[in-house]
Design a protein around this nucleic acid. Sequence first.
RNA 1: UCCCCCCUGGUGUAAGGGCAACACAGCGGUCUUUGGAACCGCUAAUCCACGUUCGAAUCGUGGGGGGGGAACCA
Length: 771
Amino acid sequence: MKTPAENGPTPGLDFIRTIVAEDLEAGLHGGRVVTRFPPEPNGYLHIGHATAVCLNFNVALENGGVCHLRFDDTNPETEDIRYVRSITEDVRWLGFDWGEHLYYASDCFEQMYGFAEHLIREGKAYVESASEDEIRDARGSVTEPGSPTPSRSRSVEENLDLFRRMRAGEFPDGTHVLRAKIDLASPNMLLRDPVLYRIRHAHHYRTGDEWCIYPLYDWAHPIEDAIECVTHSICTLEFETHRPLYNWVVENIPVGCRPHQYEFARRNLEHTVMSKRKLLELVEGGYVDSWDDPRMPTVAGLRRRGVTPEAIRTFADLAGVGKTENRIDIGKLEFAIRDDLNQRVPRVLCVLRPLKVVITNFPEGEVEHLEAPYYPRDVPREGSRVVPFTRTIYIEREDFQEDPPSGYHRLAPGNEVRLRYAYVIRCDEVIRDERGGIAELRCTYDRATRGGKTEGRTVKGTIHWVSADHSVECEVRLYDRLFLVPDPEEAGEAWKETLNPESLVVIHGARIEPSVREDPPNTRYQFERLGYFWRDPIDSESEAMVFNRTVMLRDTWVKQGEAAEELPTKPKAEVRVERHAETSTSAPEPERSAALEARRERYVRELGVGDAEGEIITREDATAELFETAIATGATPRTLANWIVHEVPREAGERALSELPFGGQELGRLVVLLEDGTLSSSAGRDVLAEMTTRGGAPDEIVERRGLHQISDPEKLGLLVDEVIAQNAKKAAEYRDGRTGLLGFFVGQVMRKTGGRANPEVASKLLESRLR
RNA sequence: UCCCCCCUGGUGUAAGGGCAACACAGCGGUCUUUGGAACCGCUAAUCCACGUUCGAAUCGUGGGGGGGGAACCA
């Protein structure tokens, strides 16, 4: 077991977990963490959903919180009870428990309606009577603001009356909608008076005919979260632009809880598709047999293929969480599956394409019972079964070659090979059929190698086999990746042409050792040298066994062959050569008032402010004012401008300058302290941080926290020696030429002094003493 | 065209001013009654430019590339 130190830095949390940890730290939400998995019951869950399920449940679990399962059933036209059943089953199968927290959006319809009336009374929503097309036209475009429709100016009373009559069913579909009154000129189109309710005289699978108006996602979802007191509402990236609307809703309705939405990039997988539409097309077009076809990336498909929930959860961990578009290597999923199965399933022997072998020196009619362990020595599990050995056996056709390539370890004329758990045999003769094909092999066995023992002799190859008389015929379905290419969507409309014609190869007449007849039907196996398999849960009768291949074994032998055929890959440099050399160096000048332009001129020409900085601080009056007030303190304009542009925004974050609790006076003073050597730039940032959060005068903060810079070479020298002594190994590396470590040492000195050391002096001292 | 988000080895994720890390894949080796597993080693990355800084993958500006957004879908 490695210690964390030997393992290097401990891996950091993903950005979602970081936010949750910070919120907990800050005591938000009363220390509670509540997440939710909110599927719409209009399709089957796939592996992308599965990673989202894992994320939501695990984030809650890791923080002592709970995760709700909530069906987002606000669209009666597409949703169905059978999907809630399959989704429920899938989430449970994945191993997650929502306890009592099973919810339906449709249970909140009454409350949502109430909040809508509240909005109307507040003058924040109105009934729109324009047609769908008219609404769209009036919404404007990305470059032009929208314009109000006549409905927008209706009175509260009229809106209330109309909305109640909408609910009462007085109007046909599409005649009216309820809209939020937000901002028709917003650059975010979603804020241009979004539709909250539409009329649909449709039967809902849960509420029946109780409602004829249904809420839209942007209205329903935040309310559901708020009602359930969800703290962290995790969704996918395409909802990023919805967040301001989400916030608007939770801030404008009278509920006690204030959830926040965070978006992550859905996990995509190589060699498959995930969209509901494409998956449906595969099923309906007969490209696969069903939603639970083992080639489908659906949870049901993976389950039927023999994948374990543990493997899927491991895969989710391996894939991680991020905000980048991604397509995860299918090898990662396969690794997770093998890694799980390797540790837990018994090995058995099965021959896919049998080749008859007669052991000529083994007596006819005799049966030898050999004991074979179920697990290899490196898997800490017990158990064995008996395999019968007879005069006639079958081996894999692939395991014999008349003219083997070099490095081939299996059977060939005159060669020896070990039969797993049995004997070493030698091939003496090849018997042909009429067409010249190989019909049968005549071999002799070495009685002394019983159980496969070969003392004093090396037999490189070991192959699997079954007794001809005792083995059981079975069907084996070899599943492979569904698409030939990693990203089928890249082919556009032709995506189905990239389907892998060999994604399913059915083998009839395979032969498996008899012991499996005694096993429970849901037993998973490794067929030695072939892969992991289990019986198809639907098509497998006890008489006619059907096995699905869950995943192949890693095969470094095949890979060697493939690698040889592989074309040399293009050097990466090629891609990089053609960079846009012609990018203009002068930044385009945004429009600004004549007054601001005059200031920019003066700052840059007369005060020595940098070009870029001068341009930035004259974009807005407030910034220029801050700058002017600050130079009055005697700070050097150039340095001051640098701090305003490069340091202040970092601390300020989302806040505007006017919201900060300090002004030019304080900022100027801070820069003066920096310039006269009182403060190191590192400590200066600390001071600025405090000024930003709490306000206060720089001098006072420096005094109180004792942040005066240490520039005295003697004092620093002592610290430098200490740091070198404490990091002797690194010092040696540095002296060996790893000079990049200088930053590390400076960092150590800075840390030791709480940022008070003069880094320039420290750096010089380090350089000379490390020489 | 306007707004928002993203860009670290082949892939996915860390490091969020101070040692570019982990996993998968790949390559080589040890071991092996599975050409499996395990173990050891190696290869391989911060989109570009300029700036701020003692020090930039990290902060700033600009550019490039990718994704999302104007449903009475979610």
